[in-house]
Simulated assay, not measured.
Amino acid sequence: MTAPPPTPSTPPAPLAPPPTPDPGLERWRLILGAPAEACTGPLGGEAAARDAALDWLYGRDPDLGRRGVRRGPTATREGGHGPSEVTAVDWLDDVHRLFPKETVERLERDAVEQYGIDEIVTDPEVLSRVEPSQSLLRAVLRTKHLMNPRVLAAARRIVEAVVEDLTRRLRPEIRRSLTGSRNRRPSRIPLSRDFDLKGTLRANLAHYQPEHRRVLIERPRFHSRSRRHLEQWQLILLVDQSGSMAGSVIHSAVTAACLWGLPGLRTHLVAFDTQVVDLTADVPDPVELLMGVQLGGGTDIARAVHYAAGLVENPRRTVVALVTDFYEGGDPYRLVRTVRDMAAQGVTVLGLATLDEEAEPAYDRELAARLAEAGAHVGAMTPGRLAEFVAEKVGRG
């Protein structure tokens, strides 16, 4: 009996490729945390690593836990990625690897400002890895009194990087606003008092007529009024160095440095809390200036404004820009009286609730309103808008 031919073996069915994760569901899972996993499905690979990094930071917030967001009773962590086992250095390495730069800056800002993870700005190893940003510079300024010399040296890298970036972006805008003011009225008719007799004679000597003993004037010369008036202006920046004003302190230092050396404009920078410190001599080096500023403490605005009044040389050619949140710890009556006296003499007084790129102030509106009634211009400005304001005043002469 002949055996039947062997039946060819059936090849195994190919394995189905893993399902492609839905980016929308994955994003919601990262936002909401483990409690959302029943609806969104689990995370894997790099998404799971992102979730661990987010949970290290936001998982410590009890409010998020009560709302069932980020951490809930069913939340688990594999691989020991709990807040107590991952160091700030490990976490920074992870977020720099897993997230884009804009997200990294937000995470670092929240770590310092919202959750008080001070080792990000007090540990030299962490500082060597951190991405320089304005939020971290504010944190450095708030905590540098706690730093030893080794940590201060590492923190200086953040100060230098942020100051360099701000200066590069602000200097062209600020200087263009001021130097452009000289040409804002090119069609102005020259006035007789501006006539330059000596300059006109020198320019027209070639047209001297000896028989008539006279010079034909073909090219009259006039003095530049805008230049002469510009040389008489003072800008006095008074900056509150309480902790809430850190952003304005940074921008005030950089703004003063950008204005420094402009022909015809003398810039002063004065910081204050309960004491007044004239920082004008340090303005050319804003890094050293910021490393010397000490945020925090009380606030005596009246004392600072009184000091500024003593710097005024020509009231009608002076702008005093008071950068503060207007929460006065000194004598508010003295403050209002001094502002009223300066305004009556012709000083332009600006009360700025903030001086930074966001211009979103939080301030004592009652005192600010009293200063406005006394003659101050009260509001919030970016550094570029401050330069435009000064340029407009200078341009009017």
Rank of each mutant, 00 (worst) to 15 (best):
R317N: 09
V349F: 10
A308V: 05
P35N: 08
G33S: 12
R303K: 15
V239L: 13
L386F: 08
L230K: 09
H207T: 14
L178A: 04
Q209R: 14
L295H: 05
T122S: 14
P361S: 13
E288G: 11
A161N: 05
A368M: 04
F195G: 10
A257R: 11
D325V: 09
V339D: 04
G298S: 12
A111G: 11
I301P: 00
P124C: 07
A309L: 01
R228W: 11
L201S: 04
V69G: 03
F99D: 10
E218H: 13
G72D: 10
P172Q: 04
F99K: 02
A38N: 06
E108A: 06
R70Y: 12
P17K: 05
A309G: 14
V336E: 08
D123S: 13
D278R: 11
Q114S: 12
R219N: 15
D273Q: 10
G59A: 06
G180R: 09
E160Q: 13
T179S: 10
R396L: 14
V151P: 00
R227N: 07
V86Q: 11
D165E: 15
R60Q: 15
W91R: 10
A47F: 09
G329T: 13
L350G: 08
S226F: 04
P73C: 08
E288A: 13
D123E: 09
M342F: 02
R219S: 14
R77N: 02
A16F: 00
Y333Q: 14
L191A: 14
T255P: 00
A16G: 00
P42N: 03
V159Y: 03
P21S: 12
Q209C: 07
P100L: 10
R385N: 09
N204T: 12
D55F: 05
P14I: 01
T348N: 05
P286N: 09
V287S: 07
A387F: 01
A304D: 03
A359E: 03
T20H: 06
T200M: 07
H377D: 14
P4R: 14
G24C: 06
Q209E: 15
T179M: 13
E113P: 00
F389L: 15
Q234I: 00
P383F: 01
Q294K: 11
V270D: 02
A369I: 03
A281R: 11
A256T: 03
T103H: 03
P383R: 01
D331I: 06
S9E: 14
N314M: 07
T103I: 06
L201A: 13
I31W: 08
E357F: 01
R184S: 11
V121N: 06
G199A: 15
D273P: 00
S242V: 04
E366F: 09
T267Q: 05
P6G: 07
H377E: 15
P17W: 08
